[in-house]
Amino acid sequence: MPAARARVEPVGLQTNLIRIAIIFIALSAYVSGAGAQNNCEKPLYLTFDTGHMGVAPLVADVLKRQQVRVTFFAANERTKEGDDSLGDHWAPWWKARAAEGHEFASHTWDHTYWRADLGDARNPSFRVRPSAGPREGQNFVLTAKQYCEEVTRAADRLKSITGKPPLPLFRAPGGKTSPQLLASAAACGYAHVGWSPAGFLGDELPTETASNDALLRKALRDVRSGDILLAHLGIWSRKDPWAPAVLEPLIVGLKERGFCFRTLREHPDYANTIRR
């Protein structure tokens, strides 16, 4: 019996040493990867606006697989499945993204486009036209206060769904703004976020004139450090969806070029707004 035991113990010791070595290698890889991300000198800020949400599950899978965190700008838009994009059907999806460390901000509640300034600097108002909600497609006027309420409503809904306070940022649909609109939004605590010229990833362009291959090549060629990138969670008009073909190759290709990904919480231009 003692001889048999002597033969077993070295095997157990060897197994434990192997396990310790595997754990050490895994931890070293994790720390090395985290350090590379923390020390990255070429940040990019990938952002997604809502849309019909048809590619939202795929986008979430790619981001999780690639360990990329982004900023979502959300409006309550019509979707291909379930209710509207900030409705109860999609609430678990948003909550899961919050748990993964993504950030959120308002895209206005009814995806409300600015059309023109009215009034003056002391009493501003705006002609608007939403592409969602009960007044979809109608032109009407919002006061500055009402416009702020339109921005805040989406932010409040995001907070109630995710339990995470959204960033004090917003993106006007289509990026359409005016100095008067920006000043009114700033007065109620919101800074506007557009996108970089090369950061327009083209997922809302017609497939006939902007193929997925061409859009991928253009982004890999033109994107530069510090750029804010724009894509959507589904575009109704595009025949050949962008995200299934382009998103992951784009992320991989940009990483190979030494870029890393950050949320807008880490963007230096918005640091003062976020700290308030």
Rank of each mutant, 00 (worst) to 15 (best):
I18D: 13
I23S: 13
S28N: 12
S32F: 13
L44V: 15
M53E: 09
A60Q: 14
V62K: 08
R69W: 05
F73R: 06
R78H: 03
T79V: 06
G82R: 03
G87E: 09
G87W: 14
D88W: 15
A99P: 01
W109N: 05
Y113A: 03
R115N: 08
D120H: 01
R127G: 12
P130E: 01
P134Y: 12
Q138T: 13
A144K: 09
K145N: 11
E149V: 05
V151F: 07
R153Q: 06
R153P: 04
D156P: 00
D156N: 15
R157Y: 05
P173A: 11
G175V: 02
S178I: 02
P179D: 15
S184I: 02
A185R: 01
G189Y: 12
Y190W: 14
G194R: 06
W195F: 13
S196I: 07
F200A: 13
L205C: 05
T207D: 11
N212T: 10
N212G: 11
L216N: 06
K218W: 08
A219P: 02
R221G: 15
D222H: 05
S225K: 14
L233Q: 04
W236D: 13
W236S: 12
P241L: 05
L254V: 10
E256A: 15
F259M: 13
C260Y: 00
E266W: 14
H267W: 07
N272V: 11
N272R: 13
